[in-house]
Design a protein around this nucleic acid. Sequence first.
DNA 1: TTGGCAATTGAACGCAGGTTCAGTTAACTG
DNA 2: CAGTTAACTGAACCTGCGTTCAATTGCCAA
Lengths: 196, 196
Amino acid sequence: MARTTGSYSELTGPKIEAAARRLIASYGFAAVSMRQIAREVGLQAGALYNYVPDKQSLLARLMLTHMQDLLEATQSLPQGTPQERLDAFVRFHIAQNYERAESVFIAYMELRNLTPENFAEVEALRQQYERTLEEILQAGRAEGCFDVNDIKIMTRAIIAMLNGVNTWFRQGGALSLSEVQELNCEMVRRMVTAAG
Amino acid sequence: MARTTGSYSELTGPKIEAAARRLIASYGFAAVSMRQIAREVGLQAGALYNYVPDKQSLLARLMLTHMQDLLEATQSLPQGTPQERLDAFVRFHIAQNYERAESVFIAYMELRNLTPENFAEVEALRQQYERTLEEILQAGRAEGCFDVNDIKIMTRAIIAMLNGVNTWFRQGGALSLSEVQELNCEMVRRMVTAAG
DNA sequence: TTGGCAATTGAACGCAGGTTCAGTTAACTG
DNA sequence: CAGTTAACTGAACCTGCGTTCAATTGCCAA
């Protein structure tokens, strides 16, 4: 056997990425083998090496393209008052986390399986994303509509809180996505508002 | 060779658990081998099986004892007004997460590497811990001092937010542990307070 | 001092891992 | 339709995995 009928790199490439994404999100990078990924696509393991130099690069590529896609999507965040921008960010983050749940999960769980170089690259993009929110908080404080003690800590606190949604939210549950977005908007609004 | 001088099960047992905890927290359960753990303790791999029936049980034991220790520690949480209890919980959670950082990390990262039975056991303990906070929010709402929309969602949001601290906080950084505790207390206070 | 128990070794088993590559076949070009 | 290129197979290489177990040795009570 050799080249199979209907085999094109433009089709096989994305199939490999999709299979890898799904399997790694389910079982973890270390627990997933190249043979498993290949089987999912309908290939022998050796064929994967026409598309990826090695297993590590496969993980790095998944994480990097995810972060790049996410950053690109932030470009469409609306302008407006800091409060409007904050609400938009909260809804955006929750929606993105839901739509790209597998990639988001991988990006948080598999950081330690990256080589130092790949880690540094992914981490830089993550910080860039964080700065999107940081900048909103800063604008709100400058305009006097937010009361924020430590901007960096609150940025991370908000993102951690919003990420938590992914661990329990499922479509078809007690709450719809937009209800969850609204509840989180409210909590975040309170966080930036002086008590009493 | 055989029994080595100064070898006692009361010493070796805890050493194995400690080594496993450290290695699994660093590299992940799937990426750590029994031989690696044995080497860390100064043993051959076979000797581990005098202490643990298999690799899976080793992970399960680490996670279960951690959750039990954590739940036991909650017994010392003080009584008082809901607000006092909430503050105490926030400080407690952050302190515990810092002191038992490795175990906490494992408990969040390695859930999917548990067998269904072990998972169910750990998950039950996790929910029990969650209920500690849930109960405080309920008490505060009943007394009218908290304004909470959805108690379950806010419980998870607060815990997710507090867990986030572990990803960046290090002793010797810009903020002390008690400063971090205080900042988070303030954010949580706002979350349970009606805005405006 | 001796006999039994506790603790560990070291080798082995079978299997699966990532990766390489010569060989083979499908698809396309002219 | 011939020749070239693209895509994939299948087998192999070497390494390491979890686990078992007979043999060995340190420890300790009698």
